[in-house]
Design a protein around this nucleic acid. Sequence first.
RNA 1: GGGCGCUUAGCUCAGUGGUAGAGCGCUUGCCUUACAAGCAAGAUGUCGCAGGUUCGACCCCUGCAGCGCCCACCA
Length: 884
Amino acid sequence: MEKTTESSMDKGYNPQAVEGKWYSFWLEKNYFKGEDNSSKPSFCVVIPPPNVTGVLHMGHALNCTLQDIIVRFKRMKGFNTLWIPGMDHAGIATQIVVEKQLAKEGIKKDQIGREKFLEKTWEWKVKSGGAILDQQKRLGISVDWSRSKFTLDEDLSFAVKKVFVDLYNEKLIYRGNRLINWCPRCQTAVSDLEVKHQETKGTLWHIKYADDIVVATTRPETLLGDTAVAVNPKDARYKNHIGKSVSLPLTNRKIPVIADDSVAQEFGSGVVKITPAHDFNDYETGQRHGLPSIAIFDKKGVINENGGIYQGLKSIDARKKVLEDLTALGLLVKEEPHTLSVGKCDRCETVIEPMLSDQWFVKIKPLAEPAIKVVEEKQLKFYPENWTKTYLDWLYNIKDWCISRQLWWGHRIPAWHCVNKHITVSMEVPAKCSICSTQEIKQDEDVLDTWFSSWLWPLTTLGWPNETKAMETFFPTSVLVTGFDIIFFWVVRMVMASMHFKKEIPFKHVYIHALVRDERGQKMSKSKGNTVDPLDLVNDYGTDALRFTLASLVGGGRDIKFSEDRLDGYRNFINKIWNATRFSLNALKDIPLAKKIDVKKLTLPDKYIIYELQQTIKETTKAIEEYRFTDGATSLYKFTWNEFCDWYLELSKPVLYGTDSEQKSQSGAVLISVLERLTRLLHPYVPFVTEEVYQLLPDHKESVCIQPYPEENDPFLKLGSKESAFEIEVVKSVVSAIRNIRGENRISPAIKIKTTFFTQDKNSLSILKQNDSFVTTLGRLEKAEYVDKMPDTKKSAITLITLGEARISVIVPLEGLVDFNEEIKRLNKELEKVAKDFDLTQKKLSTETFMANAPKEIVELEKSRILQLQDKKNQLLESLKRLN
RNA sequence: GGGCGCUUAGCUCAGUGGUAGAGCGCUUGCCUUACAAGCAAGAUGUCGCAGGUUCGACCCCUGCAGCGCCCACCA
């Protein structure tokens, strides 16, 4: 007990001790640099740039891991590979963070002004951005750091400006006074996408506007801005009122009763108040009927001068007062609970106020059309495919994009307003108004939506709008890897931008992965306190373990429920790789390895493991190419642990510890060749441990990162064979049968037993005899005997093995045992299973329709099965008889 | 309201038209000289419910239920 746990200083592989070292080494050697000029085919990925003031969360860890697997794989496959890193200035998000930071110091941004505020933000950016860099490096990402970009860099800002000016000149950007989503806290317009709707319990108030006109509303305070009430034209109750007017309560205004199809007769009273300045529906109704709009809120959400006596009240207070006053007048006729969906600011959760406002918009339909076409025509493909529908549906119904933000942090809009309200849009600061030539001009105060720079990301990171060599070599990029949450924000818009400005798709594939949630399936968020910092996990388990875990969990397209238990298992896997290497190298230390492998000299395990390796190479390669990371991980895990370690290394021991030096030299060479290939095969998933291991291998090259990925048609792999894999199956079955008998009968591992194998099949006998040393070692046998007649044993456990043509009885004497109850139990359990299967199969074979309709192979399979089951059944019955 | 996805072992999830799999957890035995972060053996499932197609359905189809997500202006 003590010996195995506490006293043992060696806790296995220590990732912390090696990861930093290798990452520095890789960077020093410039392995991750993409070449602008290269004869090799190109492979390019741009990173979804993290928010510069954010912290790296599990989503980033997943995103980075998947990209790094692909990129390392392609690099090893011989592509001129480039992965471009960078960061996003993240307008609102960053500004909020910095505002909060300043608030802690008791500073408000208006006190210090725009210039000073931006200075502070840049300071914060440098600090926070640096932390993200360190985090990314810990994950081992193989990006070309020399090409790192930030969305506010000078060259990227130039591109943003140019795009704005060009679109303006093409009349695809316009300025308009329209109803937009206004966040009263952030004091800016936000786009539709930045509003999150939440079901909220509220109240539906019924307010009497006239004797028989009662309106139902969830926002009574907005009646101050009503400019009509509407009814359905088919509604018999109100036919007579249409075209007349009613007097708006609490004000002196008369407003018309209009008829509009959008009004549902059955909802509430069937009468709707129309407030065009503060509701999107009402705005459209207003447009249809030419109604005036009366704005009653100012930018802070406080009632303005149009609100009469209510001026100065916040909306929530105004509501209270309005309701009080209506009650006093006896106009509040009913109130009932009502759930409604409330729009909240994506960033600060403040309730969004629809407001009429002058903003800049992108006319989006002309941009959307090409983006629809390339996906419909499958020039651009989504993985998994079903995201195509999400992408297209959104584009079919897309609305103009509000791109101006009343913020300070971002790209200032290159437009100048003159005193005569003319607008000049220009790359350079203009000297005068382009229309009236006045010199009294002022630049637009607003900045652009963050996504107005990130939608150019695949272009600008390669130097566009300049015609760079990088652009020529790497554009269009190969694949975009991102979460589904930013398909609309980002993916769609990148396609639009690229199609419009470059007339090409920005990337050929889009791989969409799931979100990382906590173990209960809840979204990770700071406010819930259920976030996991990937760096903590890296510190505790190592980067490779985290990467392998994420890659293993990402499959299926569903969200990942992340729990640390899984990490334990994969940390052990990394350790297993490490230990297998240590063992191999140690065992081979004094063995001169054969320079040339002679297939005639190979053992069965040698040929089998080479064959299995080849299968694994095939599977893993295909899996990565098809973005099935989980399948790749499973395949690697199974081969490494269940074949290489559990069987091959164990089977190699008799040879390596044996005395046949020629055989040792040959099999040793196979072992090291397999291990070396396995190391390369694992590298994209677990780069650190594989580099550490690789550097210990004899005759290793400079780094595993730049070695070729194992190829299926590697001549070495031709030494394996499917037949040998089958023969090893026989050996495995025999060994498992012995172990099963030992285990069930509690025969101590310390006791070496005699075992007899009975078979009348020549091939089986030959397999057994050839592998005598393997079976003897793994079964912990004293000696194996081979007979061609069933011995007349009394006190023995017998298991019949049927595998293909092979048919072997494994006979283990149980002389030393006090009682045979355990063995009888074992036999009965087995018998029950076999009997059940037998009955089922027999039933099938005696069904006429089955025999008539089932494919020949299946019928044959069932026929051979029934024979095997029959044999087994007989054997079990016989064994039981002998024990009793 | 529209769309998408999920429902398989205690937990997390794979999976295929031909008699259900993995990891973790659990039980038992092992300090077998690579690894106790290990080795060996074992137990556990009317594959959400109801129909249909089929010789045969966990898998294909239909309906239902539950859960989750996305989109949408129902006052």
